[in-house]
Amino acid sequence: MATEERPSICFVCHECDALQQVSAIKPGNTVNCLCCGSKLFSNPVNGIEKPLALIVAAAILFIVANVYPVMTINIAGIERAATLTDSAMIFIELGRPELAAMVWIPGVLIPGFIIFGLFYILFSIRFNLALPYTRPLLVWASRLLPWAMMDVFLLGVLVALVKLVALASVFLGPGFYAFVVLVLAYAAATASLEPHTLWQALGEQSDGQREACCER
C-alpha cells in the first residue's frame, strides 16, 4: 500500500532511508533531507513547460550535431571531416568494435534515447494525451541517466581540437556549434526536471490502474 496524500507527502531519503512527512512546498523551493541534507525533492517553477522547451531545443540540436561534421581537417591538401558517429565507426574499420560501442553507446545512443524519451513523456503530460509506454520510458530514462556521457564527449572534442590545431589546419563544422549548445541545453533540461513532478503527473493520468496495483 502506498502512503501518499496530496497536502503532505511521505518521502524516504534515497541516501539515508530517513522517513519524512513533507507538506506541499511553493514552486521554486527545494526540500532537503532532515537527516543527511541531500535533496529530497523540489517543486520547480513551470516543472513541465520549462524542461519540455529545453528538450525540444536539445532534440533539434541533437539531430544537427549528429548529421553535420564536428570538424574538418586539412593536412597537406587532403581534407577529412568527421561527425560524432564517424569517430565511433572508425573503430569498427580498425577492427575494434568493442571500442566503437564504448564511444557510440554513451556518447550518442543513450543521450539520444533520453532526449527523445523525455520529449515523449513531457509532451504526453503537457497536453494530457496519456500516450502509452510513458512509465517504462521514464523508468529506463532514469536508469540510463548516469550513462549519458555527452558532456564528457564534448570535453574530448575540445582536447582533440587542441591536439589537432598543432598538426593541421582545423575548421569547426556546424556539428561542433550545435554540440556545444546541445550539451548546455541538455544539462539545463535535466537540471530543471524533477522526477517527483513527472511521476505524480503520470500517476494522475491513470489513477484507477494504480490504485488497483497498490493493494498488492
Partner: peptide, 24 residues
C-alpha cells in the same frame, strides 16, 4: 567517475580525422 572516459573519446576523434593513407 564518468569523466575518465574523456581519453577514449579523444582517441576516437583523432583516429577518425587522421587517416591519411600511408602518410599518418
Amino acid at each position: 567517475g564518468k569523466w575518465s572516459m574523456v581519453d577514449v573519446f579523444v582517441v576516437a576523434l583523432l583516429a577518425a580525422l587522421i587517416q591519411l593513407g600511408t602518410l599518418t
